[in-house]
Design a protein around this nucleic acid. Sequence first.
RNA 1: CGGGGCGUAGCGUAGCCUGGUAUCGCGCCUGCUUUGGGAGCAGGAGGUCACCGGUUCAAAUCCGGUCGCCCCGACCA
Length: 489
Amino acid sequence: MADDKKLTTRKADFSAWYNEVVLRAELADYSPVRGCMVIRPDGYGIWERMQRALDDMFKETGHRNAYFPLFIPQSFLSKEAEHVEGFAPETAVVTHGGGKLLEEPLVVRPTSETIIYAMFAKWVQSYRDLPLLINQWANVVRWEMRTRLFLRTLEFLWQEGHTAHATHDEAEDEARRMLGVYRDFMEGYMAMPVVTGQKTSSERFAGALRTFSCEAMMQDNKALQAGTSHNLGQNFAKAFELKFQTEGGDEAFAWNTSWGVSTRLVGGLVMTHGDDKGLRIPPLLAPTEIVIVPIWRTDDDKARVLEAAHRLKASLAEWERREPNRLRVHLDARDNMKPGAKYYEWELRGVPLRLELGPRDLDSNQCVLVRRDTGTKETVSLDTVGEDAEVLLEKIQDEMLIAARDRREANSLRGEISWERFKDVMEGDGAFVYAGWCGSEECEQQIKEETKATIRVLPDEEFRSSEPMQRCLKCGKPSTAEALWAKAY
RNA sequence: CGGGGCGUAGCGUAGCCUGGUAUCGCGCCUGCUUUGGGAGCAGGAGGUCACCGGUUCAAAUCCGGUCGCCCCGACCA
């Protein structure tokens, strides 16, 4: 009986643990359609908070939201050679409408570059129309072979930013800027540290000049590509006649960028912070930050504790915290469950702070605050609980990021590494390995075949090792770039 | 698409080999006692045994087929 209440541990089976947490914390459920998922209110609540934060950041950097159609004429996809090659195999295609065969099949968007740049071409005539900075929140469909809740489903929710610029350098700056926005969000809100850098040509987005990525380490030491930003060069502009007149009167193709993050981030959150008790949600993304669990013994106690708990909830919800928005508080007044059972449930659901309130507390005008991340308890006065809770939530947010970064660094390897040792590491517990690379696709490919590890990114300077790499991990020839190797989702 | 596993109540399962009234736990409903780390007792509701066909007096069980899901690989955010 105790057994089916316990989660599979991360150590015993990380993949099973992940599925159980997602299902039992009610983030999502399997749907009647293969490979598709239903995002339940607790999961969607996290996504909504992610959306809100990201959307504000996009607006601050000058972008505006728009919406483009779900259906894309099949011919559009074919206009950019690499793009069609990359995405055609995984598209869903509508061939019939209203019972009739369509003249041209419609692809359900796997991503919207083609239809968006076709529209940009209509809207841009002059350099004065640039830059054009657009974002859309949408669903997309990719017919994947194998799916996993949040990490890879046939349909998923995301945002895709699409911009057009007058010069290569402006586009490059934009792609870089948005990668930075992603990083700020992932670290600041998700408490999920990332390594940023550039993808090698084999991992580059289909149709892009350069792809930049944020890579996060999950608790099984595998990498999760959490967000990408692409400098598309003029590839799509040329395919869709996205031209403008320059200041000097010449005609030129625009330079594009695109960048996106998806509901996959929710999966990343689970695998970054979850523990063997369940989910741990960083306060800034938690739909509920504080759960009040009232405790009573007698009917008299029950009445006065519940009354006090309602008042406490109201006063916490009114608390004028320094950051915008009020404390998000839930009172668990269910009377058919004992407090202990409630504790387990809210721990599973990942609410960052639990507030216990019982007769003894009331008698001394106090309550108990329990942190979900560390399990530590502290007793605080009811007169100051709003401020105490606010301070504690900020602390939890900060310390979750520190803990996640410490874990990543503890599982990262730097410096000279032999090929044999590298293989052992990848066969064993896995790691982020910073190692030299000769720059050849052959070595990259061989390493992937032999170890399943891939180059996640050629890391940006701040992540690179203090000593430059001398030799390629595989072939021993002089290294041309430091690479971050890991197995990936 | 290859390999493996599985479809029995809301969830998890036993039964299948050897055909004969559908098993248990959790959850749910009612009542009483409980409530500071997963409550107890009593009573109760809930099932086209994935689907189609066959064999048989009789099929969850045997035979044939179909569908679906999960896990592991090749593809990918």
